[in-house]
Design a protein around this nucleic acid. Sequence first.
RNA 1: GCGCCAGUAGCUCAACAGGAUAGAGCAACAGCCUUCUAAGCUGUAGGUUAGUGGUUCGAGUCCACUCUGGCGUACCA
Length: 541
Amino acid sequence: MKNLLADIFEAAKKELPYLEGKPINFSIPNREEHGDYSTNIAMLLTKELKKKPRQIAQEIIDALDLNPAIVTKTEIAGPGFINFYMNKNYLANIIGIILEEKSHFGKSDKYSGKRANVEFVSANPTGPLTVGHGRNAVIGDTVSNMLEWVGYEVDREYYFNNAGRQMRVLGESVKIRCQQLLGEEIEFPDDHYQGEYIIDIAKKILAGNSNDISSLDDKLFKETAEKEIFADIEKTLAGLNIKMKVFFNENTLYEDGKIEGLLEQFKEKALSYEKEGAIWLKLSELGNEQDKVIVKSTGEPTYRLPDMAYHITKLDRKYDLIIDLFGSDHMATYPDVMAGVKSLGYDIDRIKVLIYQFVTLMQGGEVVKMSTRKANFVTLDELVEEVGADVVRYFFVMRSINTHLNFDLELAKKQSDENPVFYLQYAHARIASILRMTKEEKLEISLDHLNLLNHEAEVRLLKKLNSFRDDMLYAVENLEPQKVSNYLEELAALFHRFYTECRIIGSEKNLAEARIALVNAVKIVLANGLGLLGLSAPDRM
RNA sequence: GCGCCAGUAGCUCAACAGGAUAGAGCAACAGCCUUCUAAGCUGUAGGUUAGUGGUUCGAGUCCACUCUGGCGUACCA
């Protein structure tokens, strides 16, 4: 719809050259008496043209070639807004388009042919996913859906590290639990993984080895733990309808010599140096605050080096867009990694880093502090079991990723019938129900009398349907999943109002059949939006 | 100390990308089901947009400073 107005302005540029290259924005006014669309372009041009904004607005309107079948009226309002009033019959055309495009309505091929990599979750396999990981998982998957929506081919990728200290401690934790289960009196160290799941893994090992672990290699404990935990993680993700395409093991970067190669490149370019037995990267020369260690004096690289190598592999894999998603606790890591990658001549503009703020888990008004090691966490599985995948997914994306999210468990559990996600799904189910009833009444869907859709509630719905495509594209291009949920809440609200004010059964036949077309269109858009968020669109509730 | 994110109604959040009189839900109060799902709708009440300056024809939105909270600021990831 905005494109249409933009085209009309484009054509007017011949007559008014000063419009060339200007940002002509159309917005939907807050107040209906200000029209259906509005632009502020006249006010933006006052300085350059040294004319009164209302005078410029008049010039622009005179130059526009407006088809009355589309735009019925324009006006100059306030300090110099140009307001457009759309033909209601034209607005109703959207119904036909929606009914034809069905599940594709609102999608775009703007980015078709492009490939994206979205890396998310990326938790090391030391324990079950927690509520904290949930926000990451859901945002990552939703962002992936959104990119697919506009044409990208998306690879969902999970990066992990099964070497390192964490994993050693994990293996030891399992071994000690085994020994304890066999009756040995060994104290379980405080800094080891305390969770119940460690004992479960230990039991599995014992069961598979006839209770004799004396001959077992230490590696087995770690590897079994990793395997079990990963299976568990994948199951958790599957419970949220998330499926990773690639599990990228950090270790392959060592095996393929990527880490060595990277070190050599830094050395060749004189970007690294040795000090106190460690190798440092000259990040201060690359515009960052201070130099950082990339190889410890023990000879072990810090996370920065493999992270850089990893990003280089992603760039080498020729993705057009690479998205990293992590929590604000990793805030400090990415500028160093990006600076390192850039210093070797790579184009880091293709990499977008999304940082979401923490989830504060509340339990009856109190903050629950969580730590995987201490095992006083609430698992994502438990949460999904309590409130369902749809609610979990919706809660995690309904707010801007930049803001903290309070997740009150008590509330989420008992809230399940006053929850926004139910509000949306209820609208969908209500329409399904209406359609079942109208079928019994022998009413058919018809596009022949859409001009009868004149009720205020109907016109508002039509306008909202018309903005779906624009709003979704905006949400995707700005990577703001919460815009999708905002749109859906507004659409559902408009539908519920329509429902109370406009009856189908009992209305005159032509009007009733036009309304059936309208609610069918609303149903499709709701389902498409819910699908984009990875939620179900139930026909009954 | 420095960096990033946030601060809007009692609570959780919107505000179309600087625009016109800041809007929803929850909670509170008052209404609406013999007719398509009341998990809904209507109405009332609730605001110095944390504060102070600035830029602008116009600021919740941009800039500066202050205050409050979160996260960082490792030879952890």
